[in-house]
């Protein structure tokens, strides 16, 4: 080995090594161990799990609550993906067209993303409180007592309130990705469109949207992951209730693993959820890649 290649080898080791070690130690290894634990009855109380073969997987296919969690997660995910993919796109285009107080307005939209998810969730829990929450206080103040609701407790409203929390928290981030992409569209395309007499809608449909498809792909995948991983918001606000009605897949894994002391079964749920997410994300990327435009 020459001195040059030794340096190159060392450089790559030094530059990539820490990240690889951290990623391996905190992501890959736990994932492998999690897969291994899915074949055990590990409770979390001891370090000697017993091998139970496919028992956990057999239980899973008959587990109503698992399927209920999947249904609720998918419901939230559909709302989240639609909103972060298309709602954020519309907002980004609108924000891009603003000429005055541009930075301030963009900053206001981005600000909720800076808050910790837990803080946002606590804030929404306060907003939703039936007796003292800001929403009902406001409604009562303007004489709309009949409109007051138990926003997080009413099983018909809670799913939408959770969605509002997620949407409020993440809107700025997804919008920022679109805004960054909008800045990369060459100005001469806009100028050519203007010369041809194109209106705002035509500019959006024929220039901006096709050029934003790569970000749309990324946003939709990130939104999908956000939806499937919906967990801290649930823990802080509804704890999966009322009943188990707002238990997402992530919350169900937590409930089984931590509260019900069934780490082995929780690992099985995690593994199956991981496979499902992988499949959906791959399909999503494959479908959206076809629509991308290359300059």
């Amino acid at each position: 080995m020459t001195r040059t290649s030794l340096y190159r080898y060392l450089s790559s080791f030094v530059l990539c090594g820490p990240a690889v070690i951290l990623y391996g130690g905190f992501v890959v290894l736990p994932a492998i161990l999690g897969f291994a634990y899915s074949f055990t009855d590990w409770t979390g109380w001891n370090s000697h799990p017993h091998f139970v073969g496919l028992a956990n997987f057999r239980e899973l296919v008959r587990d109503d609550r698992f399927f209920s969690a999947i249904r609720f997660t998918l419901f939230e995910t559909v709302l989240i993906v639609a909103f972060f993919t298309f709602g954020a796109l519309v907002l980004a285009v609108l924000l891009d067209s603003i000429t005055k107080f541009k930075g301030l307005i963009r900053g206001l939209f981005f600000y909720p993303y800076v808050l910790s998810i837990l803080v946002s969730a606590l804030l929404f829990q306060y907003l939703a409180n039936y007796r003292e929450g800001a929403i009902n206080t406001l409604l009562r103040a303007v004489g709309l007592n009949d409109w007051t609701q138990d926003w997080m407790g009413d099983s018909r409203l809670a799913p939408y309130f959770i969605f509002c929390l997620v949407a409020w928290s993440g809107f700025g981030f997804f919008t920022t990705l679109y805004l960054a992409n909008l800045q990369t569209i060459p100005q001469d395309l806009y100028e050519a469109a203007r010369i041809d007499g194109a209106g705002a809608w035509s500019v959006f449909r024929r220039i901006q949207f096709p050029m934003l498809v790569p970000t749309l792909t990324i946003n939709s995948v990130l939104a999908l992951i956000t939806g499937i991983n919906l967990f801290p918001q649930i823990v802080v606000t509804t704890e999966g209730g009322p009943g188990y009605r707002t238990a997402t897949l992530g919350y169900y894994i937590y409930w089984q693993g931590i509260q019900n002391s069934r780490q082995g079964y929780a690992a099985t749920v995690s593994f199956v959820a991981f496979l499902a997410l992988l499949g959906v994300a791959a399909l999503q990327v494959a479908l959206l890649r076809r629509k991308e435009v290359v300059l």
């Binding site: 007051t148 997080m152 407790g153």
Partner: peptide, 11 residues
């Protein structure tokens, strides 16, 4: 009463 699901032990 309505709103009971907003309340816990502290309330």
């Amino acid at each position: 009463e309505k709103g009971a699901l907003s309340d816990g032990y502290n309330e």
